[in-house]
């Protein structure tokens, strides 16, 4: 694994010793894979384009620069929370981040949607969607249904609840399959242990949707206080970069204040 993580700036020369060569000579030579933040200038120069940590993984023969940008760049198969800005004849136009071009969401890319049964979404509605097409020359495209199975798999319009802005790096942590073990983010689990009932959806575009679940007696409706506590816990953990222990303290404090 990568042990050395040097800081690189745009235009720096990467020492050749850091560029992974085929680690396993028995296997077939894998081509070197360049991740974000690096560019290849033919014939053989590899130059960073952003300021960040250079990460190399020799056994996968890949390298990239780890950096934090506050503007979301759409990438295929990312899960995002989009706001519908208007509806066209065949598409909804949805905004992924402020001041950027709208993404298109076909009217029929919802579970079981036909021309007659498709969901009618007024401007300002929220959807949880997956990016299907992202290309620097075109506006991004998103969908709310898996094109392979025809199932929604949790995607679709988001009703009620509240959206909170978080940093892109933190959103990525929350989306990790095991965010507690690998991501050091326990705050949602802790809130659950305190007896709060809520559901969340995390978008890679730095948004998290939080909604209070209907309580045990089946009383519909969102408990605003619960949602605010969850949102604040997430935002504070993000901006103050809290560790697990501090997250525990924060959750205790917020829950105490609420009751």
């Amino acid at each position: 694994m990568a042990t050395e993580r040097p800081l690189v700036l745009p235009g720096d020369v990467i020492p050749p010793s850091l560029i992974p060569t085929s680690a396993n000579p028995n296997k077939k030579q894998q081509p070197l894979r360049l991740g974000p933040g690096l560019r290849h200038i033919p014939p053989s120069d590899i130059v960073p384009t952003v300021a960040g940590q250079l990460i190399t993984v020799p056994h996968k023969n890949s390298m990239w620069v780890e950096y934090n940008s506050s503007r979301y760049t759409p990438t295929p198969s990312d899960l995002v929370i989009a706001t519908i800005s208007r509806s066209g004849p065949d598409f909804y136009y949805a905004s992924l981040s402020p001041y950027t071009a709208n993404a298109t969401l076909p009217h029929l890319s919802f579970e079981g949607a036909t021309k007659k049964t498709r969901p009618q979404l007024p401007p300002g509605s929220l959807v949880y969607a997956r990016v299907t097409l992202a290309n620097k020359h075109m506006d991004p495209e998103i969908e709310c249904v898996s094109s392979a199975t025809g199932k929604a798999d949790g995607l679709g319009p988001l009703k009620d609840g509240m959206v909170f802005d978080i940093s892109l790096g933190f959103a990525r942590r929350l989306l990790m399959a095991r965010s507690k073990e690998e991501g050091k983010v326990e705050v949602l689990e802790l809130l659950g242990e305190e007896g709060l009932a809520f559901e969340t959806a995390v978008g890679r575009n730095g948004k998290v949707w939080v909604s209070g679940a209907s309580d045990a007696k089946g009383n519909e409706g969102v408990n605003a206080k619960t949602v605010v506590v969850v949102g604040r816990a997430l935002q504070e953990t993000d901006t103050k970069r809290l560790g697990v222990e501090q997250q525990r303290k924060l959750v205790k404090k917020l829950v105490r204040e609420m009751r």
Partner: peptide, 8 residues
């Protein structure tokens, strides 16, 4: 300017 969503 981005408008807040209906949910918000």
């Amino acid at each position: 300017e981005a408008e807040p969503s209906l949910n918000e």
